[in-house]
Every structure is written in structure tokens, then in C-alpha cells.
Amino acid sequence: MESNNLADITIYIALVVSTLRMATPLILAGLGGVFSERSGVVNIALEGIMLIAAFMGMLVSYFTNAPWLGVLAAVASGAAVAWLHAVICIKYKSNQVVSGTAINLFSVGFTGFMLRKVFEHAGQSPPVAKVADWTIPLIEKIPVVGAMIGKHTPFVYLSLIAVVISNFVLFKTKLGLRIRAVGEHPKAAETVGVDVFAIRYLCVLLSGALAGLAGASLSLGFLSQFRENMTGGRGFIALAAMIFGKWTPYGTLRACLLFGFADALQILSQTLGLTFIPRDFLLMAPYILTMAALAGVIGRSVPPAASGIPYERQK
């Protein structure tokens, strides 16, 4: 196959655009992980929450024909599932990994079952209305940059905004301080009057809402229908990105972008016909790169000290 001109700027634009798109659901879900774990609750249910939210979002968009209502429903259902996780983990102090695993198991069965029940069709839903792309007025006009970030599905922008806000909240506000205190030293936090339970509930709900948004980005942003297992492991990749990013919003963003970039590069290499590398190794590349980056650069990652430990209120 003839080789393309690698100096062609469109290739690089495509790479950036594709990276952003593929990173978006990971960023949103990863941020969800950050909030939850920062407050001391492990949330490996991100995958399952995304899947249920993707389904509920599609369902509401299907019946109302209003995709943004679907997005709201996705966020709400994400928060609702997370609430269940929160009750089990915070109120009843059960093992957080068990609860998360159960939710993941449940989501696959539930969405598959409901799909058949509602549409009498296996596999995927009918096409529904999805949210329209956003164009950013001035930026859109700038050459190159405009092509890269001028027009996207709203979820791309929402995910980036969410990163900035999350970082601000976590590190620049009183609430953020409390969240981090609860995740590191719950007892000390309570001593100074912080309601550990309330903070944890809030963070887990937020985590579900963000994962719900991630789910909506799949079924109402990038696609316009629900497909069984459409999350395809993204919740777990997001979890990895969160740890990779050392439980910080910007770190998570970087990790998701790296992963998205590696995947975009892999797809582009195929498109350009770089066939001297076996295709399976191209497909593996994002995962190998992540491991190499971690081993070589990032190194030790330390979770919030009280992450995963149920809190017992002091008398």
C-alpha cells in the first residue's frame, strides 16, 4: 500500500480529534472514580454504572425524543445506582469491592433483559435522537486549532470542563479539603466537625453522576443507540487511568488522553497501511504503552489512606 504523506497536517488534526473523542468517556468515568476514592470509597462499579446509564439515557431519548432529557436520565440513573453502592458501603459498611462487582454483574443482566423486554429485540436498541454537536464560535474559525477543537459532541467539552471544576473543587475549596480529609483521616475529620458520612454519600453520588454522563456520551453522543455491553471495559480502563493519574483530576485527564492517543495512533497506523507491524500488536499497543509509561515514568501510586475502609462513627 502506498504510504501517505506524513507531513500532511490533516493527519495530526485527525489524531487530536480522535484522541479527544476516545478519551471522553474515560475522563468522565475516571473523574467519578477520583471523587469516590478521594472520599474513601472504592468504586469499581464504574463500568456497570456507565452501562445502566447508557441504557436509561437511550430509553428516555427514545420515548421523549429529547436527547438532553436522556442525558439527565443517564446522570440520574448513574447517581441512583451509585446511591445503592453508597448505602451498602457507607451505611452498612460492607466490602466495597463486593458491592462494585455485584453492580457490574447486575448491569449486564439488567440492560440485556430490559432491552428484550422493552424492544423485543436482542443486541441493540433502535436508533434514537442524540445530542447535537457543539461548535465553539470563534475558535471554530481558527485554522488547525478550529479543526481540532472547534466542533465536537458536547460530551467532549463537558468532560474537559468537568476536569477543571473537579480540580478546583478538590484542591481549592473547603468542600474539597473536607473530601480529602475524609479520605485520608476520617477520624480526624470528624473530630473537627466534618460529617464523614455526608461527604462520602455526596462523593459517591457524584461519582455515579459522572459515570452516568460517561454512559450517556456513548449512547447519546458518539452513537445514537444502545448496544449490549457497549461500554466494552471502558469503566475498568477509567479506573486504571484514575490510579495512573494518582487520584487527581489533571492526572486522570493526562492518563485518559495518553490512552486515547495510543488508541487513535493505532487506528491511524492501520488506516495508513503500516502493515509491517502485525495488526494484533497494533491493537495491543495502547495497553502496552500504558504499562510502559507507568513502569518507566509514573511509578508508585498511593491511594487515599482511608480508601476502601468503612467508617465507624465515633461516639
Binding site: 493527519i11 487506528i267 488506516t271
Partner: peptide
């Protein structure tokens, strides 16, 4: 006529299929 070729590595991930297709449209 030139033919571009791409594989998703999966059979059940529509988002991935879309990304591969967009890369080809872009090229």
C-alpha cells in the same frame, strides 16, 4: 481506486467501529 483497511479488534464495540470509520473518512 485506493482501498483503506482497518480492523477494530472486536465484534461488539460500536464506538470503536465508528472511530475506525471516521479515521478512514478523514483519510
Amino acid at each position: 481506486v485506493k482501498v483503506l483497511r482497518g480492523y477494530t479488534g472486536k465484534f461488539d464495540d460500536p464506538a470503536k467501529g465508528k472511530e475506525v470509520a471516521l479515521a478512514q473518512f478523514n483519510q
